[in-house]
């Protein structure tokens, strides 16, 4: 898998995780979704495809900017 494919798939995963995090009312699930997003941010960061200093500052893939 080349770097561009990795970036595309990771962005898709982040959108799904944002939905889980924002819509699920179970703290355990919401926190796991948040932590999974941290790792996704890490993937993008290590490929130079994400410049937000922390995942919390990434543009919200689940709608609101």
């Amino acid at each position: 898998m080349d770097e561009q494919e990795v970036v595309e798939k990771t962005n898709e995963v982040r959108e799904l995780l944002a939905e889980l995090r924002d819509e699920c009312d179970i703290p355990s699930i919401a926190h796991s979704a948040h932590q999974a997003d941290v790792y996704c941010h890490g993937i993008l960061w290590e490929l130079g495809a994400e410049d937000a200093t922390t995942p919390e500052l990434s543009p919200d893939p689940h709608g609101e900017e």
Partner: peptide
């Protein structure tokens, strides 16, 4: 948490 991950990295 993200910082601990990146420091570890």
């Amino acid at each position: 948490f993200p910082l601990t991950m990146k420091m570890g990295e």
